[in-house]
Design a protein around this nucleic acid. Structure first.
Lengths: 146, 146
DNA sequence: GCTGAAAACACATCCTT
DNA sequence: AAGGATGTGTTTTCAGC
């Protein structure tokens, strides 16, 4: 993991379908050399995959929310992951230190659907309360590298 | 935008570097037909790009936080975007309805760096207060399609 | 949306430093 | 160990249908 690897990652984050020759031209390496480095970074788990970026609104996901969950007593991270991952509208979840115990990111097609998801989360026995923030506008979201 | 387009998006989200032939085999189309649909979806802004997925921890981004911002008076979304986008550790920002006015997602290499980012956000004249949640563990995060 | 041909690319092998 | 060059098979891409 040196400066060249980071340059390659930066290039792949800006264009995940860039050809190895194209990346090589940017970092001063041949295409096979770039591929070898990418393969190694995947093997080491630094690059975990490639994906298409979509505009949620253009695909019908018009409503988005961040919901904090406050639990009553201790809940293991594994249990949290299991119960939250089962709800398809939850696209991300993190345990946090601060006021709440966990934050989940919900994407849905309507406000009604958001409400249903929150209801479903509250079914978990140990959920004491939730606190929602409905997203009005996404200012920006960018890939990050180092 | 029909069912086939959605299948193609799903495939590209699972593997952003999949070949058109490969996708075509899955959806029952030839490679050129798949490419035409992908090009159209990019043109229509439904697919906004392709990127590499990385493991933040493996790249040195060991510390992560969600910070709510409460503003004193009105701040335009454009002004928010301008001031927040200038801070590189902020990887996402949304205006919200709920308790806070905005939520920002911060990724950094250390707790100290998180503190510095929060300090820098508070320099904005109209920031009344902030409320941080430090991420302890990322339970999951998944791409979403429809 | 398919077919077919030309160009570009990926991938493996070998060779150099 | 790490990169460059070469050859082969695939993939992309642009016609024409």
């Amino acid at each position: 993991m040196d400066a060249v690897d980071r340059e390659i990652i930066g290039h792949l984050m800006r264009d995940g379908r860039a050809t190895y020759a194209e990346i090589g031209a940017g970092v001063g390496l041949s295409a096979p050399a770039v591929k070898r480095r990418v393969d190694q970074m995947r093997l080491r788990g630094q690059i975990t995959g490639f994906t298409a970026l979509t505009d949620p609104a253009a695909l019908g996901w018009s409503t988005e929310a961040y919901v904090e969950i406050y639990y009553d007593g201790n809940v293991s991270a594994a249990e949290l992951k299991r119960s939250l991952e089962a709800i398809p509208q939850i696209v991300g979840a993190w345990t946090v230190a601060g006021n709440a115990d966990a934050i989940v990111h919900v994407m849905a097609t309507s406000m009604t659907e958001i409400e249903q998801v929150v209801e479903r989360m509250r079914e978990h026995a140990k959920v004491e309360r939730t606190r929602s923030a409905i997203v009005m506008s996404r200012l920006f979201e960018r890939p990050r590298s180092r």
